[in-house]
Write a protein that binds this DNA or RNA. Sequence first.
DNA 1: ATGTCGCATTCCATGCGA
Length: 261
Amino acid sequence: MRIATWNVNSVRQRLGHLVDFLKEAQPDALCLQEIKCIDADFPRAEIEAAGWQVETHGQKTFNGVAIISRARLEEVRRGLPGDEADEQARYLEGLLPLGTGVIRLASIYLPNGNPPDTEKYPYKLAWMKRLTAHARLLMAHEEPLVLAGDYNVIPEPRDARDAAAWVSDALFLPQTRTAFRSLLNLGLTEALRASSDDSGLYTFWDYQAGAWQRNNGIRIDHLLLSPQAADKLAGVQIVKHVRGWEKPSDHVPVMVELKAA
DNA sequence: ATGTCGCATTCCATGCGA
């Protein structure tokens, strides 16, 4: 089974690329972030025509997440628990069939948090705390679980081409990295780091300042696996060439292969 | 070299978020 995540930076602007990626990569499930539209405006018919099903948790203008899957998603949860007043659409979860069992999958768009001296940064940290609390409950099920998305976290210096440029940024501040480790310390495995210790592996290149041409990237899109999912991990890839397409998202897809058995 | 996008409204120019 192939599971991918991709921040598309507007699903309506990226529909052509999205269909091309689905046909090329043939994922069983694809978590999307920053769809930037309400549910009714999601280009559902085009995705269904290509042979996939769609669940959305959208919002006007900003944020918005979705899960595209071959099989119908069950037990769908929209929104991250822990704050009824939070209206930002950043979390969508559901259950997928996997061989004779199931796999629980979440599409996550973690808050950016910049600038750090505003209310945006405490919101990010609080959101990470809520995510960790919810992940702890999910881990107790002792089932295959994949938490996939744009975490807006650069875990380590090797995950940035120029780490020094990020030291005061919400994506790389010590509190951010500590909160991300707390999540991992529940017993989650970061899929890419289970497969490679290499530096120079990025998932995002800014539109500005020729970042792509200079390979000035960062790695902020992650797939976190429960032990039962990590047992099945057969491969992981960053689908980098997508960043070279015309009018691309600033993020590229990341995809894992899980053994069915 | 903060050099780009996408969205929405104040609507063909500007502010916001990233």
